[in-house]
Design a protein around this nucleic acid. Structure first.
Lengths: 99, 99
DNA sequence: TCGACAGGCAAGCAACCACTTGCCTATAGT
DNA sequence: ACTATAGGCAAGTGGTTGCTTGCCTGTCGA
């Protein structure tokens, strides 16, 4: 479970997809494709993005809903919220903002 | 920079190493090796752990200091603190605890 | 009804990654 | 001085992964 989450975040293209979904929820596969090629100059095939979305969905970071022939993708930030707690909770060093 | 961080976290063995360092700071390579084999039944070679530590150090998650023939490793949680902010900051969904 | 559009499935390939093996350096103890 | 200990360097290997290519399914508009 944590494994799928961290592996999903390991790829820079997948993180950019999360960026796009954070900026605008409910995008379709083609919208994400064109956004990636426009803004980031990424020449990815449709299937590549589709596979990335499958990985993100398996990790719980993306949820999809189908309407007709469109499939809309939504970002779910819930799995991201407790990632660092695993190592931060018993933190003995003082990481306060530099005065 | 973010790439090294996420790739470092992608491996389950490296995350266990971070767990061990979170539990006890300043461990040597051999201490980490024996801990991993004891507690997690991981039969890893010394070089495997050494390479993992190099990856973690490149990501800024582990800092090392040399004293004589020993090299002590310390966990640095600083890179972990702002990981999720990238996607959470402009979060419009209501993820409050279930009432 | 038929063609265009949105998406899915599966095999194949090249690059990467975790891990091993073998050898080497340097410090500490006797 | 010499041996054991702690660690490093580099080449090789099997498995994984990101991406492509080709083909198929389902939905909407004319």
């Amino acid at each position: 479970m944590a494994d799928a989450l961290f592996k999903a975040l390991a790829d820079p293209t997948r993180r950019k997809i999360l960026d796009e979904l954070a900026e605008r929820q409910g995008q379709t596969l083609f919208e994400i494709c064109s956004r990636l090629s426009m803004k980031h100059r990424l020449g990815l095939s449709r299937q590549a993005v589709s596979q990335h979305l499958a990985v993100l969905e398996a990790a719980g970071l993306v949820e999809s809903r189908r309407e007709g022939r469109y499939k809309f993708h939504d970002l779910n930030t819930e799995p991201l919220r407790h990632i660092a707690e695993r190592w931060i909770r018993s933190d003995q060093s003082d990481h306060r903002e530099t005065p």
